[in-house]
Amino acid sequence: MGRRTRCAVAVGVVTLLAVFPLVGVGPYYIRLLNLAGIYVILTLGLNFCVGMAGQISYAQASFFGIGAYASALLTLKTGVSFWAALPLSALVALVFGVLLGLPSLKVGRYYLAIVTIGFSEIVRLVLLNWKEVTYGAEGVKNIPVPTIGTFTLNTDLRYYYLVLTIVLFAVFVSIRIVHSRIGRALHAIRMSDLAAEVMGVNTRYYKILAFALSAFFGGLAGSLIAHYDTYLHANSFNFMESAKILCMLFIGGSGSIEGPIIGAVGLTLLPEWLRFLKDYYMAIYGVGVVLLMGVMPSGIRSLIPQLARFVQRLFTNKQRAVRSEH
């Protein structure tokens, strides 16, 4: 694809996304789309660390939580506006990301997995018990809704455009990073830590950078959820939440841009389409993850080329059919 066509496709997709909720989609679905968008940001973030750099992290939900709490408490206690709290909370999460990145320099694989689980458990317990700051087990209530002048983002539809903006930002940043020396360096670390280092990649710096970027995106998503739900509880940011984001990443296809988007949107909407499964949904989901990792370890994304070929064949067949009619 040339630069022109790529730009045209991008403009088309953005327009579609902007117009889509206006045409007869109920508020309930818009809420789902908002959640899907927030998970896209989380999953694209986790993609830096796990997908690109190959460093396992069970801590994405913690950065989500840290961002959410930071944003909520900043607006509630210091009175800054949401628009300042959004980047600030992402930066707070980023600092914690750097902190969690440090052990990844010393340990890898299973050790790193358990360290990140430990980190997220400690974060959750601190959020749950540090009553003076976080309101402890009561949770944070009455988080202000963002406003632009006198315009309040108090409906699902209004919030949709805020989420969409941040999602587009996250996608844009991800694309730019993947196709740069930074993306190549992260990718190299995933393939071989040692080879990357010997090829001149400062693997220590880039591992920490990967964690920092993951955390930054996690923080953005956290700020968005805090001011959308207006209520927070520490227990939402637990191990299973991190596991869910990891599943989104791998089911979609890690290391790419489209994979995390497919995974996050798909797994947020799927329960709606599979409502008839009721209580069995999650159990089937668990089995699905196991089976998918067995047969399609690069995720749903690996179907895209086949799908493209299929569509192409469909079109050529149609043309042939049309031609033969004449």
Binding site: I56, A113, A243, F250, A283, Y285, V289, V290, M293, G294
Partner: peptide, 15 residues
């Protein structure tokens, strides 16, 4: 890959 195994184990846990 090790990451694939980890994610699969998450599936088992959920199940």
């Amino acid at each position: 890959h090790f990451l694939t195994v980890i994610v699969s184990t998450i599936g088992v846990m959920i199940f």
